[in-house]
Amino acid sequence: MSESSIVVVKDLEKKYKSGTHAVKGINFNVRKGEIFGMLGPNGAGKTTTLQMMGTLLNITGGKIKILDFDVESESSKVRENIGFALQEAGLDSLSTVRELITFHVKLFGFRGTEIEQKVEESLSLLDLHQYSDQMIPELSGGTQRRLDLAVSLVHDPKLLILDEPTTGLDPAHRADLWALLKKLKNDKGITIVMSTHYMEEADVLCDRLAIIESGEIVAMDTPQKLKKTIGKDKIEFKLSEKLTDEQKQIINDKFANDDLSVGESFFTIRVNDGEEALLDSLKIIIQMDIKVKGTKVLRPSLDDVYLKYTGKSLEDYS
């Protein structure tokens, strides 16, 4: 394990007795303090991988080391050092918020005055004070997710594993949770491994990303670098009139180095930074007395990346 790696996954496999080969020899490392994402559709093997990391499923091949502890032979050490929030907020429906947090604080061995101190810390961190005496089923989906995170964090874990943390949440609650996860990463230095099938979420949150398809990692890098593999930004200019041959010739001369594509009443160029290049390009076009009806900057998306590596679009799942 390299010094900065919190998680080392080597040749990991999961074969169910039914014959399903859910994870097919994947490898990845997660560095200290980063948010590492696993992006893929349902059934890709994300949850299975996370559940093996969280000691919830038996490993049938390969190794996982978390904080240098082997997940199979040192599972109790792993459980003491991780926080795990499952796909569905799994909470005790017979408790109040405060009772549940208190129980988890005790479960991790805190005693005496530490208990109340830890409970108050958790309520404050996740902004749950106003719900502290409410029964859990009475809480909204977003608040239940926050509580799920609160109980996963009571022992200040070094690694937080989140399985599709925002599935089922409305956009406002989703944005709140993103902000919270960023805060946990920045303020507390917590390393996060999460799965998602939302491209926007992967893009906004993850420092590095593994694209997983049918139990295999097909690409892994920062979202920016993955998108770079697709190519440059594309600027599309829609024109009010059809281009004359003379105008086409001038455009060809001016944008010869920008992977130009010219149509009857539109043309596109490819540049490194579309938004930065847009204004300069427009000035040139206006000088040529060409009337522009509209412009569009198209940046490569993670869906383009997914499409490139798997031949399928993830947008259907989102």
């Binding site: 000691t55 459980r79 795990f84 569905e88 061995g109």
Partner: peptide
């Protein structure tokens, strides 16, 4: 009865990833 509450809410699995195992 109480066990089923834990199993069906997913809380049993959540606890399995803690020292409760």
């Amino acid at each position: 009865a109480a066990l089923l509450v834990d199993l069906n809410t997913g809380y049993f699995d959540k606890l399995r990833a803690t020292p409760a195992s």
